[in-house]
Design a protein around this nucleic acid. Structure first.
Lengths: 182, 182
DNA sequence: GGTCGAAAGTAGTACGTCCGACTATATCCG
DNA sequence: CGGATATAGTCGGACGTACTACTTTCGACC
């Protein structure tokens, strides 16, 4: 699936050695982690898009569908989708435009606020997202090769980072402060 | 820096609960890991681009400059840059177009192969990449908040994944088979 | 030596993302 | 009540990425 031949050596390790050679030893580890994340995301996104291609979906559009499918009424405000997916409102507009064109969602007015728009999953959309999820589970999530302890390590470490970056408010007081500890 | 308010709850944990509720327990962990990686990359890229903005650089263009800066002659074939950065040749063309426009690199013909093009760092480019690297070290890598053990966990786990995906050939025989061990 | 396939790079197109500007509506308050 | 401000969503543009198609050149084979 990568359009490139495998490299003879790990480019992340290479970069780390370069950093250490320049004396940036403190930054070398985090730099390697950041670079690993960037490259892994690139590989994951490419794989996901390839898996979703038969459904005429991209990963971004799949995320919108999946989000809707987990709501009671299969319906959500554009604004809320934008907030939950942490993307710019125009990205949601873009995704919904295409999903609506494909008949997988509908835009509906909101009676209590005429500025707002509800996005609703159509029956076709519900069917497609179910199939797409099965495909992703089978061909991506179940075959990443991540070991259980790696999953917890990655999720745990990135959890802390995301919380610090303001992705979400870490559960400090009430809810449940369990960490992804092994 | 995120253009959104922090969410009240962790969306990754939320998704994981949804997966488990549907009975996709095997896939739930890797799904959470993948989602974490996607979101972390989004946050990291946004931060990096913001840090690089004063230098009129994006992270992609910075990567090209950094790659060149670590070669002896500050020079590299387009093709090789494409392979090392694992991006499509057209992405390199795009990046080099803009870097050349900014006077940070030059395209030079290759005497032994008239199809090929060498990209060479200009003195301005060398200066800019040095400053940009200092900025990234200071404002991104040294402030990710990753603990040492988290760095090794993330790098190690993604290392395995990237090797399996064909990002690079894992060192199995000769070179140096040390893993990202603590 | 000539042909034919492969390789390096570029142009054009599609898509996703962000930003800034804009419209329409809602809300706050004086 | 009415103007100022804030909010929901969209439009146009910039940028990064990938894909396809194309040109030029290389190299290999007959």
């Amino acid at each position: 699936m990568p359009q490139h031949e495998p490299l003879p050596r790990d480019p992340v390790a290479e970069a780390r050695r370069n950093w250490e050679r320049e004396g940036w030893t403190q930054a070398a580890g985090p730099m390697a982690a950041v670079t690993s994340i960037m490259r892994a995301q690139q590989l994951l996104l490419a794989r996901a898009d390839r898996i979703l291609k038969p459904f005429r979906l991209t990963f971004s559009r799949y995320e919108v569908l999946a989000l809707l499918s987990f709501t009671r009424e299969h319906r959500m405000l554009m604004k809320k989708a934008s907030a939950l997916l942490q993307v710019h409102p125009t990205s949601i507009t873009n995704a919904v435009d295409r999903l609506e064109g494909a008949g997988l969602v509908r835009r509906e007015p909101v009676s209590t606020d005429r500025r707002a728009v509800n996005v609703t999953l159509t029956p076709e959309g519900l069917e497609v997202v179910a199939q797409a999820t099965r495909a992703l589970n089978k061909d991506l999530f179940l075959t990443t090769g991540f070991e259980d302890h790696e999953v917890e390590a990655v999720v745990g470490a990135l959890n802390g980072f995301r919380a610090r970056c303001g992705d979400f408010t870490p559960p400090e007081s009430s809810s449940d402060p369990r960490r992804a500890g092994s």
